[in-house]
Amino acid sequence: MFFEKSKMEFELDFLVTAIESNNFSVGFYLLKVYEEEITRNYQRAVDALVKSFQQSSHYLKAKLHMTKMMLTLFNFNAAKELLVILQFSFNDSSVEGNLFSSSNNPLLAMCLLYELLIEIIKKFYSLNNYCKSLQSKILNMAKLYIDSVDDENFLTTVLLERDFSGRDSLKIAIDLDLLDLIQTPKVKAIIKRIYYSDYKQDGTLYEMSTTYQAVFGNKEITPDVESDFNLLKKREIESRPQSPWMYEVFKESMNSRIIGIGLISGVYVILTCACYEIVTTSQ
């Protein structure tokens, strides 16, 4: 990469320029390599990303993916401004103002946007009603789009096109429990078609092996399960209740004693009955 060869120090202007010029391949690279530098001084990059939704509808999938990556850096005002831009776009009936008009896969973009709104709700719950309203509109548009497609092969291709994280529209819809979308007749027919292997699926039998995925799988897509059990990782334990079977708790807790005595008594009664049954039958 040019930055590494020239040994230039990273500046936030590089990322801002990449976003403003819709050069998201460079933007993703900068986010990955200079994450710490961007985290320390991120506001201008967030503002540029939000405004990019207003400037044009091109590269929507890349914008949504980058927004999801940078959502932890968003403050309330930035999230609210993004929702206002999305709302304005949904209310615009012209082709130029339609948010999904330049997307080669509007259905995938709708699913990604629906998912992004869920993440915004988790971060800013006060925007819940705003996001729910947009989600309802997105779901209606997705159903209208599906109904408008008559070619089953084309719709199957659209549903199985993957995003930057390796998920297709069908996978996202299932993960988000979008039953209104999944249970439409055309989507149900495609699901049955895939289930009965009428549609070609890329891959081999070896790829179903966990060992194969651990050695040859894409590490950027496959989550690192062991990272959650790292002993050096900081853990939040304040909100977790203590186990009643911890020795120090058991000594002080009457409830734990009652449960313990009850279990011991139950085991004693069962063993006594079993022994009595054995003795009586042997006589």
Rank of each mutant, 00 (worst) to 15 (best):
M1T: 08
F2Q: 14
E4F: 10
E4Y: 09
S6N: 14
E9T: 13
E11R: 11
L12P: 00
A18K: 09
I19D: 04
S21I: 10
N22G: 02
N22H: 09
N22L: 14
L30G: 01
Y34G: 04
Y34I: 08
E36Y: 04
I38M: 06
R40F: 11
Y42Q: 12
R44F: 01
V46Y: 11
Q55K: 12
Q55S: 09
S56T: 09
K61N: 08
K61I: 13
A62C: 08
K63T: 05
H65Q: 03
K68H: 11
K68Q: 12
L71A: 05
F74H: 05
F74M: 07
N75P: 02
N75C: 06
F76H: 11
L83K: 03
V84L: 14
I85S: 12
I85E: 10
Q87L: 06
F88A: 15
S89I: 03
D92S: 04
V95C: 08
V95T: 12
N98S: 15
N98W: 15
L107A: 03
M110A: 03
C111M: 15
I118L: 10
I120H: 04
Y130R: 10
Y130E: 12
C131N: 02
L134G: 01
L134F: 01
L139G: 01
N140K: 11
Y145V: 00
D151G: 01
E152V: 09
N153S: 02
V158S: 09
L159H: 01
R162V: 13
D163H: 02
S165Q: 11
S165D: 12
S165Y: 03
R167I: 00
D175K: 09
D175E: 14
L179P: 00
L179W: 05
I182W: 05
T184C: 08
V187D: 01
K188Y: 04
A189V: 06
I191A: 05
I191W: 00
D198Y: 13
D198N: 14
K200D: 12
L205N: 13
E207F: 04
Y212P: 04
V215C: 08
G217A: 07
K219C: 00
E220N: 11
I221Y: 08
T222H: 09
P223R: 02
D224I: 09
E226P: 00
E226N: 12
K234S: 11
R235G: 00
E238I: 15
S239A: 10
M246A: 05
Y247F: 12
M254R: 02
L263N: 14
I264C: 13
V267K: 05
I270A: 15
C273G: 07
C273N: 09
E277T: 07
Q283S: 13
